[in-house]
Simulated scan of single mutants.
Amino acid sequence: MDLSLFYFAHDSTEAGDGGRYQLLIEGAKLADRAGLAAVWTPERHFDPFGGAYPNPSVLGAALATCTQRIGIRAGSVVAPLHHPARIAEEWSVVDNLSGGRVGVAFASGWNAVDFALRPESYAERRTLVRDTAEQVRRLWRGEPMAAEDGLGRAVEIRAYPPAVQSELPIWLTSAGGVDTFRAAARMRAGVLTHLLGQSLEEVAGKIAEYRRVAAAEHDGWTGHVVLMLHTLLGDDLERVRELVRGPFTAYLKSSANLTAKSFLGKDVDLAQLNAADMDYLAARAFDRYFDTGGLFGSVERAAELLPHIRALGVDEIGCLVDFGVESRAVLDGIDKLGKLHEIAAR
């Protein structure tokens, strides 16, 4: 089982002492030296929480030039917001800059406001994500794509520059829907998922279904599953708990619709919850995720969780580190991830 670095939720309004992207760049360098498998960057729009990441290919290009061996991946490209040729072009550039280290997870998108970029795609986004991913794959291989030019003429286009990798490694991102797991299996794509709104047992069942479909559709191919886990490693458990409590609780509140369903077992009208209810819900969620749903504390404590994650069928843990904890503590924790990665690889 591999470990990788995952960025998702940095507050774009705070530049910090060393610049807005210091944590991203310095963390990627540390992960590169520590032997981690990849560094993932997301696509987020129109919100301070995550708004520092509007385009993963731009950030991937920066990371490609300051790292040597680590994979450079999108986690995720919101496929319905983009023309497939544009995705293929941008990521082929990053593949060239990195010497063939690119991978892309494709997401359908969920936030309607993001679709201000392409409102006509919102209704069909779940179909478009699969169609777009397949079109990008074909363009990546050098195959032509039928299109219409500015004069209304039918033309064929190809994506340039040619990529280093002959085949683009891809994943589909799932917030928990088993149909997405099945679709990824049929497409011979990996799955990228997380624990917000689903239990470890539920994830295990969906991975088993993914493996079953993948093996049946592709002659024994079993696929690749990446599970995002919030992560902060340190020497003292209680010190880590206090560093994490405030920012992670705020993060959970920002995902309250998923958090509430996870604990109450049903969809909840958040408008009916007052501030005290929200605080209670977030506090319960924090205790649960800190104890069983993240990699928190010492290397040794985090290592105890690894066999349980591996038993779910997970191939890679995406260690999500930028959820509001001070940068120095995050970077110190990334340094320790190298030791955990050695344990995970055994």
Results as ranks from 00 to 15, higher is better:
Val268Pro: 00
Glu304Met: 14
Gly333Phe: 04
Gly297Gln: 04
Gly318Leu: 03
Ile309Trp: 12
Ile317Phe: 03
Ile334Ser: 03
Lys336Met: 10
Val314Gln: 00
Leu320Arg: 14
Leu270Ile: 06
Gln272Gly: 15
Arg328Trp: 09
Leu337Gly: 01
Val330Glu: 01
Glu304Thr: 15
Thr292Ala: 11
Val314Thr: 03
Tyr280His: 15
Gly324Phe: 01
Leu305Arg: 09
Leu273Ala: 03
Val299His: 02
Val314Ser: 01
Ile334Cys: 05
Ser262Phe: 04
Tyr280Arg: 15
Val321Asn: 00
Arg310Gln: 14
Ser262Cys: 04
Gly297Pro: 11
Tyr289Ala: 13
Asp269Ala: 10
Phe263Thr: 06
Val314Arg: 00
Gly333His: 07
Met278Tyr: 11
Val330Gln: 01
Tyr280Phe: 12
Ala285His: 07
Ala282Pro: 03
Pro307Asp: 04
Asp332Val: 05
Glu316Ile: 13
Gly293Asn: 07
Phe323Asn: 10
His308Cys: 08
Ala311Leu: 09
Leu281Ala: 01
Gly294Asn: 05
Ala302Phe: 11
Lys336Asp: 05
Leu270Asn: 01
Ser298His: 09
Asn274Val: 09
Phe290Tyr: 10
Asp291Pro: 09
Ser298Val: 10
Leu281Met: 11
Ala311Ser: 15
Glu300Arg: 10
Ala329Gln: 12
Glu300Gln: 12
Val325Arg: 05
Leu264Asn: 11
Ala285Asp: 08
Ala275Val: 03
Gln272Ala: 15
Phe290Ala: 09
Val325Cys: 10
Lys336Glu: 06
Glu326Asn: 09
Ala260Cys: 07
Gly293Cys: 07
Lys261Trp: 09
Asp322Asn: 12
Pro307Met: 03
Leu337Glu: 03
Ala302Arg: 08
Gly333Arg: 08
Leu295Val: 06
Ala271Met: 09
Asp291Ala: 15
Gly293His: 04
Gly265Glu: 10
Glu304Leu: 15
Ile309Phe: 14
Phe323Ile: 05
Gly265Asp: 09
Ala282Leu: 02
Ile334Leu: 08
Pro307Arg: 04
Val330Arg: 00
Arg284Val: 07
Lys336Ser: 08
Leu320Met: 12
Asp315Val: 13
Asp335Val: 08
Asp315Ala: 11
Phe263Pro: 02
Ala283Ser: 14
Asp335Arg: 14
Met278Pro: 02
Cys319Asn: 09
Arg310Ala: 15
Ala275Pro: 00
Leu264Met: 14
Gly338Cys: 02
Leu306Glu: 05
Ile334Ala: 04
Ile334Met: 07
Ser298Tyr: 08
Ala329Pro: 10
Gly313Pro: 01
Gln272Tyr: 06
Glu316Phe: 13
Leu273Glu: 01
Leu281Asp: 00
Asp287Trp: 04
Glu326Thr: 06
Gly297Asp: 03
Phe323Val: 06
Asp332Ile: 06
Asn274Lys: 06
Asp315Phe: 10
Ile317Ser: 02
Val299Cys: 11
Ile317Pro: 00
Gly293Ile: 05
Ala275Glu: 07
Leu264Trp: 13
Leu331Asn: 05
Ala302Asp: 07
Ala260Arg: 00
Ala329Ser: 12
Phe290Ile: 12
Leu264Lys: 14
Arg310Val: 15
Leu312Asp: 04
Tyr289Met: 14
Phe323Cys: 08
Gly318Gln: 04
Gly333Leu: 05
Lys336Pro: 08
Arg284Glu: 13
Tyr289Ser: 10
Ala285Leu: 09
Val330Phe: 02
Leu281Lys: 00
Ala275Ser: 09
Ala311Gln: 13
